[in-house]
Design a protein around this nucleic acid. Structure first.
Lengths: 211, 211
DNA sequence: TGTACATCAGTGAACGCGCGTTCACTGATGTAC
DNA sequence: TGTACATCAGTGAACGCGCGTTCACTGATGTAC
């Protein structure tokens, strides 16, 4: 997985692959998923459309890789929230990071969570799919789950009757994902102070589960 | 707005318009929004593609009308939850109805909440857009807000510090919408018992805000 | 170091396809007298 | 009631477009001796 041991050829190959994905990401960011085409990508990196087939087998494969990268980027973004924060604040910031990522990359976020091909392969599911198939590790859910778990262990929140760790994390994910989706689709024209509303809401959520 | 006073011509006209929208809805339901085309709609109602332009000015206009209808349908679906339920249970059932609608009409739901053209015109926004523009009345949000409001008045839930009625309703909407979205996109392959999880989660949400 | 050859990375042109929309048209329906 | 005409609802063919993908090709890069 490291890039030592790679020949210059292989390195160039990977760099071009990355350039293709970065071009794809930029096109989506600028004009939405509808504008993403093999030709548009090729244009952007000064290749002919046919050239891309040296690096990816199909457009679908490019989108798959793009989604995978997107999930990883979102995960990395959330990991920037400092673990030094008290567990309850950490949870709130984790949620806000998720929402902010969506707002800053609305069309990218939409693509990631709307494309039916790139799904995480949770344990127990058919193993050995395409090599670039997404795994649990690439999802942002475990990060949210970690935040909840930490707050539970610190005694900051407890489970409401009938809910286990997983369900609680799922509930948290739902709030956060719902806020993100609503803000980038339904509410994106509205000028109300949703930043404040999101923060209050998440804080209330955490506090609502408190002791 | 009633259909008395309508000539047979006008009645036929409206019936064909409805047939077009129903065909569009069915196509989306069967194959997703990608499969929705003027030709596919025409095929389904035994028209030539050109014929549709008697009823709608463009494909975009059809999609706009379809989204509007979708929001109204979702609203109607939620209104089926009996108001005789105690306010806290009413809220839970309202949320579950929203989620079930999404699960039963995943691609339709996705279209409705993803299309950028058909947005609700909340008060204060530019009035006098296209006649078929969506208004606040066509959104499902007021129904959720009504549910929250009722629970508050009954003393079943109270506002957490800093949250008003609107923010509380927004928080409720976010959970519900997030659960719906996750279940039809990210989680649609997973076999875990999310029906149960959703119910527990919503009950916990309501109870968490209780006295 | 120089030469001969194999492999590689990328091109240009073309393929067939489905799309939204336009337009001159036609037969059916409705209206006026 | 019958006739002449206007309007309407719908058609068929064509337009130009952008798309994903294929394929024979070519010059550049790397390898073997």
């Amino acid at each position: 997985m490291t890039d030592e041991e790679l020949s210059p050829r292989e390195r160039r190959y990977q760099r071009t692959q990355q350039a293709i994905l970065e071009a794809a990401r930029a096109i989506v960011a600028e004009g939405g998923a509808d504008k993403l085409s093999i030709r548009a990508i090729a244009d952007r990196i000064d290749y002919s459309p046919a050239g891309l087939y040296e690096y990816f087998g199909s457009k679908e494969e490019i989108i798959g890789a793009l989604c995978l990268e997107g999930h990883r980027t979102l995960k990395r973004y959330m990991h920037q929230v400092p673990l030094t924060l008290p567990p309850d604040e950490y949870m709130v910031e984790l949620g806000l990071a998720y929402i902010h990522f969506a707002i800053q990359n609305p069309d990218y976020f939409l693509l990631i969570f709307t494309t039916t091909s790139a799904r995480p392969a949770f344990e127990g599911e058919a193993a050995g799919g395409p090599p670039e198939e997404m795994t649990d590790q690439d999802s942002s859910f475990p990060v949210l789950l970690g935040g909840v778990s930490r707050a539970v262990q610190a005694g900051k929140i407890h489970f409401l009757a009938g809910l286990g760790l997983l369900e609680t994390a799922y509930a948290f994910w739902a709030v956060v994902h719902g806020a993100a989706m609503l803000r980038i689709t339904y509410l994106d024209q509205m000028k109300a102070d949703f930043d404040r509303a999101d923060r209050l809401m998440l804080a209330a959520f955490v506090r609502g589960m408190g002791p």
